[in-house]
């Protein structure tokens, strides 16, 4: 049994791409919020919960949204679609925000809506809520993008028949530096379904490296 990458999205270097094509670019932003907000509005999702998310979750949410524009998720058993993500900074960007609310004893006001995002897998939760995915979860940490780390984890999920499909990739954000690469992985079908929006790239660590390097 082999797997293929059938859709992917990239957010990096001021550009947002889906299946390799540029969807949006903006060279003139300073903060991540300034970059992502106009694009979110352009997507016109009617999903006000987005504004409550921390920057890391916003990044992962948008990257996932773009992948699921190419996939007809209604055709899958949502209990068997997994999400496995990784990054280097964990939730440190929001950790720093929470720390600021408790640094000064005379201004000690920890905020639940900040604290809840001080775990990187909250981003997985946000994507699961949006797309009603209930399968396997895993959040991993590595110093740099590590294609083999993700490949092995996802490959084992398929080997153990734990998933029918899996969203995987790298979503990292810290102090206005950000990058995301998300891939949708599923078993390679001999006769590709009539889904013209999909691509078909054999799933391997090398393929992930190639996609990661293309900017």
């Amino acid at each position: 049994m082999s797997q293929s990458i059938t859709a992917y999205s990239q957010i990096r270097s001021s550009c947002i791409k889906v299946n390799g094509s540029i969807e949006y670019c903006d060279e003139n932003f300073i903060t991540f919020a300034e970059f992502i907000k106009p694009f979110f509005k352009h997507l016109n999702l009617g999903y006000p919960k987005f504004y409550k998310m921390d920057p890391l979750s916003k990044l992962g949410f948008i990257a996932a949204e773009l992948v699921f524009r190419k996939i007809n998720i209604a055709l899958y058993d949502r209990n068997r679609v997994g999400i496995v993500l990784a990054n280097a900074s964990s939730s440190l960007d929001t950790d720093l925000a929470h720390q600021r609310t408790i640094d000064n004893r005379s201004q000690y006001f920890p905020s639940p809506s900040v604290f809840v995002y001080t775990l990187p897998n909250i981003m997985i939760g946000e994507i699961c809520i949006r797309h009603q995915l209930k399968g396997e979860n895993g959040f991993l940490i590595s110093e740099k993008f590590d294609s083999l780390l993700l490949f092995n984890y996802v490959n084992e999920l398929f080997q153990h028949h734990r998933v029918d499909a899996c969203l995987t990739g790298w979503v990292d954000l810290l102090q206005e530096r950000f990058e995301a690469l998300l891939l949708f992985v599923e078993p390679t079908t001999k006769a590709p379904a009539e889904e013209p929006l999909k691509v078909s790239i054999p799933f391997s660590a090398e393929a992930m490296d190639t996609l990661y390097k293309i900017t």
């Binding site: 964990s90 775990l119 990187p120 897998n121 909250i122 997985i124 979860n137 895993g138 959040f139 991993l140 940490i141 590595s142 780390l149 092995n152 984890y153 084992e156 999920l157 080997q159 153990h160």
Partner: peptide, 23 residues
């Protein structure tokens, strides 16, 4: 191999080791 998945982290760590050893 570092797992950080909130309160299930410890079990996820055992699960991934279980799977990698099994195969």
């Amino acid at each position: 191999l570092i797992v950080s998945n909130a309160c299930i982290s410890g079990i996820v760590a055992l699960v991934v080791a279980f799977r990698y050893l099994r195969t």
